[in-house]
Computed example of a mutant assay.
Amino acid sequence: MHLKKLNAAATPNKLGDYLTKAASKSPMHAAHGAGGAVSVRKDDYNGHAIEIRTTYQILVDGKKIRAPLSVDAAGQVHCHSLPNYQTASAVDLVKALIDGFPDEFERKPAPRKRAGAAKKVSKHKH
């Protein structure tokens, strides 16, 4: 970018207009409820207001995890837990969560049955 164009773009009015427009296109923070993380993207196109809501319910090893995933206007997925990561898919982001927080995803061994805990069968004479 040429220095004159950069200076013109950095004037308070131009920069303010750009940031206002960019903020309206950026995703809202994901909502975290029982239904999972909800990402909302908004844009205006040819006089039409576009709103896209994406809901993520994530299971790892059959257990529901609460990960605040969001999708930006370009379709990139990101998570507040990994602020420096942006991936092309939610699956790749969950893989990064597993790698980044391995203790949270440890598989716990299934409880072992005690030898004396077997069901007792009563013997009734008929």
Score class of each variant (00 low, 15 high):
Ile50Asp: 09
Leu59Glu: 13
Ile52Thr: 15
Thr55Phe: 06
Ser39Asn: 08
Arg66Gln: 12
Lys42Ser: 08
Gln86Val: 06
His48Pro: 02
Pro83Trp: 13
Asp72Gln: 03
Ile52His: 13
Val40Met: 11
Ala67Leu: 08
Ala67Asn: 03
Pro68Arg: 08
Gln57Trp: 12
Asp72Lys: 03
Gly75Ser: 08
Gly75Ile: 11
Leu69Arg: 00
Arg66Ala: 05
Gln86Leu: 05
Ala88Arg: 14
Glu51Asp: 12
Ser81Cys: 10
His48Asn: 14
Ser89Trp: 07
Asp61Tyr: 11
Ile50Gln: 10
Gly75Arg: 06
Ser70Val: 07
Gln86Phe: 06
Glu51Phe: 04
Val77Trp: 01
Tyr85Leu: 05
Pro68Ser: 09
Ile58Asn: 00
Lys42Thr: 07
Asn46Met: 12
Val60Cys: 02
Ala67Tyr: 01
Asp61Gln: 13
Ser39Arg: 00
Leu82Tyr: 01
Ile58Leu: 04
Ala49Gly: 07
Leu59Asn: 13
Thr87Asn: 03
Leu59Asp: 12
His78Pro: 00
Arg66Pro: 00
Gly75Leu: 09
Pro68Gln: 08
Lys63Asn: 10
Ala90Arg: 03
Pro83Thr: 04
Ile52Phe: 13
Tyr85Asn: 07
Val77Ile: 08
Tyr56Lys: 01
Thr55Val: 06
Ala67Ser: 11
Ser39Ile: 01
His78Ser: 12
Ala90Val: 00
Arg41Lys: 08
Lys64Tyr: 12
His48Ala: 12
Thr87Pro: 02
Tyr45Ile: 05
Tyr85Asp: 07
Gln57Ser: 13
Asn84Ala: 14
Leu69Glu: 00
Asn46Arg: 13
Ser70Asn: 09
Val77Asn: 01
Arg41Ala: 04
Gly62Phe: 10
Val71Ser: 01
Ile52Arg: 14
Val60Phe: 03
Gly62Leu: 09
Glu51Arg: 13
Val60His: 01
Ser70Gly: 08
Ile65Ser: 03
Lys63Phe: 04
Arg53Tyr: 05
Gly75Cys: 06
Tyr56Trp: 09
Pro83Cys: 09
Lys64Ile: 10
Lys63Trp: 06
Ile58Tyr: 00
Val71Gly: 01
Val77Pro: 00
Ala73Cys: 05
Gln57Arg: 15
Val77Leu: 04
Lys64Trp: 13
Asn46Trp: 11
Thr54Ser: 05
Leu59Ser: 12
Asn84Thr: 11
Ala67Val: 03
Ala49Asp: 15
Asp43Gly: 09
Val60Pro: 00
Ile52Val: 15
Gln76Cys: 11
Gly47Thr: 06
Arg53Lys: 12
Thr54Tyr: 02
Gly62Val: 04
Leu69His: 01
Gly62Ala: 09
Ala73Val: 09
Ala49Thr: 15
Ala73Leu: 15
Ala88Ile: 09
Ala73Ser: 11
Arg66Val: 05
Gly47Phe: 07
Thr54Asp: 03
Ser39Gln: 04
Asp43Ala: 14
Ile65Ala: 04
Ala49Leu: 13
Ser89Tyr: 04
Gly47Val: 07
Asn46Glu: 15
Ile58Glu: 02
Gln57Glu: 15
Ala88Glu: 15
Ala74Met: 14
Asn84Gln: 12
